[in-house]
Design a protein around this nucleic acid. Structure first.
Lengths: 133, 133
DNA sequence: CGTATCGCTTACGTCAACGTAAGCTTTCAT
DNA sequence: ATGAAAGCTTACGTTGACGTAAGCGATACG
């Protein structure tokens, strides 16, 4: 049985990252792989966290920001004040993501216009070329 | 008349960036302010470009990627092959943005679930606290 | 006329996020 | 037994995106 843990190499292959990157994330307390002697063993939780880390990076968050967000996602049973604080931060993050989505939709609309313009351009140039032949 | 151009300071105030940043963007050929003697004068085109630069950064693009995208947006009348190539790149970018939006929506849904969970948590903890009093 | 203020250039400093190299154990197949 | 492979630690190097400091020219102001 594989005990549901991955070696560092398997983890790298699964997520297309380097060992250095995984060790770096551990040093920054973004991942907490178990140890079997010296060797790291990455659990299901680590895989879920790494997925969120990479997603966060695609959205342009810094590792430090991502670490805080992970602390939110993976809170155990904590004190009420902690939960409440986390709740507020999560709501702020939601607002951030929604505004990002809106801006992204703007950018998409802009680009679609740009593409229409490009199509007309190409068409008219083909026109011109045929006329010149 | 202000000739529709901004000094570097006005530009900084308008976009909340530092002079260093604007000079840096010029050095990297992302902006092309005119000169009045030594002094930079930022045109409407520069303002539009800077808006796109800052938007790109919020989406996690590197300045080099952004420069290429700007070259697309602001192509003059070029050769057909150039237009056609730009068209392809723009379509690829559109696909990228749309997939980002989809992933963003996923993240938003996840977070909404998380928030519901948090609300329940807080509610049940208030319950517990009242029971213990 | 002195002196601030604004802008310019040149150049070195910095921080995040890894890359890369050196040298050391453990493991496992030949 | 051994030597290649995989993993580890430590530490210095690198790249991108600016920050910051020094020093100079022009311009405005009291």
């Amino acid at each position: 049985m594989t005990a549901d843990t991955l070696t560092i190499r398997e983890m790298c292959d699964a997520f297309e990252v380097t060992p250095r990157t995984l060790r770096f994330y551990e040093a920054k307390e973004l991942l907490f792989p178990h140890r079997e002697g010296q060797k790291r063993l990455f659990t299901k939780s680590d895989r879920a966290r790494l997925k969120l880390i990479l997603r966060g990076k695609r959205f342009g968050f810094s590792l430090e920001e991502i670490r805080q967000l992970l602390d939110l996602y993976y809170m155990g049973d904590q004190q009420q004040t902690q939960i409440a604080a986390a709740y507020d931060v999560a709501r702020a993050r939601l607002a951030d993501l929604e505004s990002r989505r809106d801006e992204l939709n703007e950018a998409i609309d802009d680009l679609k216009d740009q593409l229409k313009w490009g199509e007309k351009m190409i068409a008219s140039m083909n026109q011109t070329r045929r006329a010149a032949e």
